[in-house]
Nucleic acid binder design. Structure first.
Lengths: 114, 114
DNA sequence: TGGACAAACTTGCAAAACGCAAGTAATAAT
DNA sequence: ATTATTACTTGCGTTTTGCAAGTTTGTCCA
């Protein structure tokens, strides 16, 4: 169950957008599907997300059960972010968006691993 | 071809989010798939979009070739908005988002016509 | 063991987007 | 001619975004 005080409506599309309908969440999730796990790995994406935004998004995605957050075994500073089963279930959403983008934006392409 | 000066990257997901990755665009598109065509019809949705936001989104979606905008035959004031083929091709995206929402938000449901 | 370094944030602040309420222009109805 | 309707636009206060700089905690290595 996803915690949030105010959903705009009981429409599943509206609720999903309330959860991750912003400019960045789905890109973070894309990178998680690509195997990225650490804060600085997300920063290397070509879209150049700001650290405060990334921090806020990871916290929100953790809070809502889309990702897990735990310290790496060998370095307690490094936080390891991974998709939960709930997060992994977003794969069809990510793929349908990616597919539409490839069809409608000349010059774009899906990278390996997606 | 979609006109915009600055895309964040050449990733198809990032480009798609630049186009309609905000809180409202996909809800307008949802309503278009449901058969809504006129300004005041979109205003009746339970999410209560503001008129200036709706106006801006319809203009942007028109400009980017997702919807067409023409006066109704019998009333020149009424603007009739409809999905273009490009807009209709978003159906798998809308459906995958709706499906995920139904699975993960108890109490939500897709309405007739989607 | 102590100084340099690194990871993951946090803070400050300016700019942009959002959202509400009220106003307006063009057309239609009576 | 007057009133109502449609599709906006404007003003303005609030919220979110984005950039740069700073902070904290943990690691590395001489």
């Amino acid at each position: 169950m996803i915690p949030k005080s105010q959903w705009r409506s009981t429409c599943p599309i509206a609720c999903t957008l309330d959860l991750l309908g912003d400019r960045w969440s789905l890109l973070v999730i894309r990178d998680l599907f690509c195997g990225k796990q650490y804060f600085d790995e997300f920063l290397t994406a070509p879209e150049k997300i700001a650290t405060n935004i990334l921090s806020a998004r990871l916290a929100w995605l953790t809070q809502t059960g889309i990702v897990t957050r735990k310290p790496a075994a060998n370095d307690k500073r490094r936080m390891c972010y991974q998709l939960t089963p709930r997060g992994q279930s977003l794969k069809p959403v990510v793929l349908s968006v990616a597919h539409w983008g490839v069809e409608h934006f000349p010059g774009t392409a899906m990278e390996r691993g997606k």
